[in-house]
Amino acid sequence: MNRRTARRGLAAATAVVVSSTLLTACAEDVPPQPQAGQAFDGPVLSEEQDTDVLTAVGETLGKADKKLESKALKSRVTGPALEVRTSQFEIAKSNDDDASFVTAIPSESQQLIIPTTNTWRRTSFSITAPTEDMETPRLVALDQSEARDDYKMWAWVQLIPGVQMPAFADAGIGSEAVPADDESLVATPADALAQYADLVGLGAKKSSFSDAFDLPDGDLVSRVQSDAKNVRENTPGFEDAGSELTVKYEARKDAVRAVRTADGGALVMGVLEGTTKLTAEEEAEVPPLTATQEALFGDQDPSNVLTVEYTDMVALYVPPKDADGKIRPLGYQHDATAASNE
């Protein structure tokens, strides 16, 4: 090895050391590319978020209930719930602000049913705790109709005492929304509601759908029928005046919210529109029969016709097609929302 090569070698070694140090110090790896991760297929809200929603709804209800001001409801109440609550406010106001006309809805939840729908509309459900008066828990449906909307209470029902609720998927897993025309059930949600409306209007004996239903005591059918019976039998002069009471019930179209239960069935909430028409003789006058009707009737002149309209929110359990089960009513909210002399 002569000097030159040695020197060259030395220089090369130095260069390698220095340059590698510099390079490694300065050169950085390329920025990472974003990894999208797994698409969301779980609940659209966390339990925490859903609880927050219920709290917000509860606060809104609390404020509005205090003032009996339906405007204050609008930020968190919509659909039939808004309709019914507005009616309740009116009735309460004309009855010396009697809060008993307004259904209490606890914001505390004992079970959250959160959808997995990634598009809109999204509907979540909640089974509330029992009320302070130890009334049965409420089943509440909350809608988010568009992405920029908040969840709003769309409907609520009071659960029928002693009713057995179907099991739902855990809130952390989420429950699939069921379209109104879902075929996997013994009846589509829309059909189930229509059949139930028929049953409510005609009563279990006359309706052709009574076989499809497993009617518990104290459900809407018995309530409406017993009310009608009560009017017919106990209204003074009902028979003398040759009066007639007709009860008609229909399911409101497009007012269907359904969610899958754990057994593949569905919880269906919907609205039944009921009309009772009491018709007496031409000369007779039929005044409003209850404080509620009175309030709704307002200062109209009584005629021989009294028509009361009901907006009834109902909840049904519809079993899956292959389960051979019967549709069971779970709860209802029966409220008169209008009364007229026509």
Partner: peptide
């Protein structure tokens, strides 16, 4: 885009 928040 998804993943950008946790990029680094």
């Amino acid at each position: 885009d998804p993943g950008v928040l946790g990029l680094v």
